[in-house]
Design a protein around this nucleic acid. Structure first.
Lengths: 339, 339
DNA sequence: AATCGGAGTCGAAGCGCTTCGACAGCCTAT
DNA sequence: ATAGGCTGTCGAAGCGCTTCGACTCCGATT
């Protein structure tokens, strides 16, 4: 393993000079610089991460805590994770992958050991037990998701409230008066995951403003669960003509079931999804949807974090504005059936 | 930030004693040990990762290189990644997430900087450009996936050859004579990703042994692509009664299309999938399938790696035996239609 | 002509930990 | 009784890097 000292010797300069060439923290004559750079290349030198971290108390690592639950909105998680890793590299950081398994201890461990300079938390619950720790440490952090109390925290998320409102609005403008919301699995609501509750909030308040009737039902993924949920919904509100779906793995089952029951989309029934772009495009009916901008969320979280690490941070809540793309799954409400 | 020295002082012992309590590398009297442990708890001490890495030249970090392409078999990737992270923690390692983006340079960087003690590579191509580097370094590594030449490498993968064979076999035993294989997107084959080609190998050789006719067609995910592919298949081989699908995002579209064309599953047509358990169970027809054991692959890779790091490693290829679970999507071939 | 300041370089002092050799007790085998 | 071997502890020497102060030139300022 090549060391700084060897590079220095090879280039005929002192170790500190090499260090300054690397960091650019002091001016170096261009002749020396090129000589050193050549030596580095020639010897295939890579600075030792541990030594660097020790001396500078900067690890150049960002910790990313992803939820352990792999059963939910997985592709989104993955996309965010990859976006985070990519964006972090672009700023010279590596990413340490922590699972939610360790829980709050992970925060202590990472902050205490100097393993990472900062952390990004995903899957934040409304009243997350990691938050007090985060507030108590001076380690910069960014949340992807919105807890109930954001004081002193930096958060990045899609504006799910606005998302909910947007969906209702779209359907209402098309004349739908009875809308059913197919939500995430009940467990998600029980855990008080912010995004689910906030979407619901947005849906409900806009619905009442517009005088639209709303029925919300959580739903596990999969065909059978969706079938049961749909049956209950149609039983309770036979006049339902609009659906808002916020559960990737319920989308295709819903479409299949509607088709099977002879309800045409979008002629008889309209469907709006809150899901990744890809799901909306690949579905059997191209779905009108609000995309979950996973990439942007990941990138933006890193940007916020890097800003903080560079001392130009702020405790902001960045809410990404939702965009509704109209595709083939929504249309005017059918003429009201006689009462 | 609490240091070893402070703990030592608090406990009234020398720094080295604290270190030995932590590492267990020398015997310590139980009285001293408990005293030190108490001080550690009381002060909330966490060893500094950088210092530890520098002094011991061990970072206790495993690097995980995941493919950048987020468009393919994503949930499997994620599940593997999480399994790796979890298993690694159980052995005292953290996981550094690298995207494929950097390519071979990432290998150099990680190996050169001592950032990680070892690495796990996913999405290995048959003739992967990272392999020479891996062979050239003394950094332990494990591949998830199988390259063409495994000499000097440790690999973990599902036995996709056997998987292919198993699928054909199952259909052949049920009397199917004309089988169509719906594969991954063409790009996957063009990249010479091992698993896709090896599945095909297994399918073909077993098919010819059993005298079954096989038609293989790559297919992008999604409804439209599947529709086009299915049309071509049925045009070319109208007598097709068995399908093997190795493409998660083609599964549901295929089922929907068959239904739509009045071909009942499993009465008229049988479908076997190679996909994660969850997909098979949640599909609109519960699918007979060979599961992709993501968890086990991740866990096993870590196990191999840790063994290597502890000096009891071997350059093995661990092929996980496929298991075919019969569900509701396969049945006896219908009576042959008159010629 | 004397002074000042910036540019460029060096040496040395750590950063917090591991680990090696040394040593003081104590027990056991001769 | 004495040598030998354990056990438990300590001190000191790094690990490879960053960074601070100091020093040397050299051109620009008065």
């Amino acid at each position: 393993m090549v060391t700084l000292a060897e590079v220095a010797q090879h280039a005929g300069v002192s170790a500190s000079t090499v260090s300054y060439v690397l960091s650019g923290k002091r001016s170096i004559s261009s002749t020396t610089r090129t000589r050193v750079e050549e030596s580095i290349r020639e010897l295939g030198y890579h600075p030792n991460a541990g030594a660097r971290a020790l001396a500078s108390s900067r690890s150049n690592i960002i910790a990313l805590m992803v939820p352990l639950r792999t059963d939910m909105y997985v592709p989104v998680m993955m996309e965010i994770a990859i976006a985070v890793a990519t964006a972090a590299r672009a700023h010279g950081y590596d990413v340490l992958l922590l699972t939610g398994e360790e829980g709050p201890d992970a925060v202590r461990r990472v902050a205490g050991s100097g393993l990472a300079d900062a952390m990004i938390l995903m899957d934040v619950e409304l009243d997350d037990e990691r938050l007090p720790l985060l507030r108590g440490t001076d380690q910069p952090s960014v949340l992807i998701g919105l807890p109930a109390d954001t004081a002193g925290l930096t958060c990045v998320d899609l504006d799910f409230r606005a998302t909910g409102a947007l969906c209702v609005e779209h359907l209402a403008l098309l004349g739908h008066r009875d809308i059913a919301v197919i939500g995430e699995a009940a467990a998600v609501y029980e855990r008080h995951t912010g995004f689910a509750e906030r979407t619901l909030d947005g849906l409900r308040s806009r619905a009442s403003e517009l005088g639209v009737r709303l029925l919300h039902r959580p739903c596990e993924g999969g065909y059978d669960a969706m079938a049961a949920t749909l049956a209950r919904v149609l039983d309770e509100r036979p006049g339902t003509t609009g659906f808002v779906v916020q559960n990737e793995s319920a989308v295709e089952p819903l479409l299949a079931l509607l088709r099977q029951q002879g309800r045409a989309v979008p002629e008889d029934v309209s469907v709006v999804a809150v899901c990744p772009e890809q799901v909306a495009v690949q579905a059997s009916v191209r779905l009108t949807s609000v995309a979950i901008p996973a990439q942007e969320m990941g990138r933006s979280a890193v940007e916020q974090l890097v800003a903080k690490l560079d001392g130009r941070g702020s405790d902001d809540v960045v809410l990404i504005a939702p965009e509704l793309t109209v595709r083939a799954s929504t249309g005017p409400a059918p003429a009201a059936t006689p009462a």
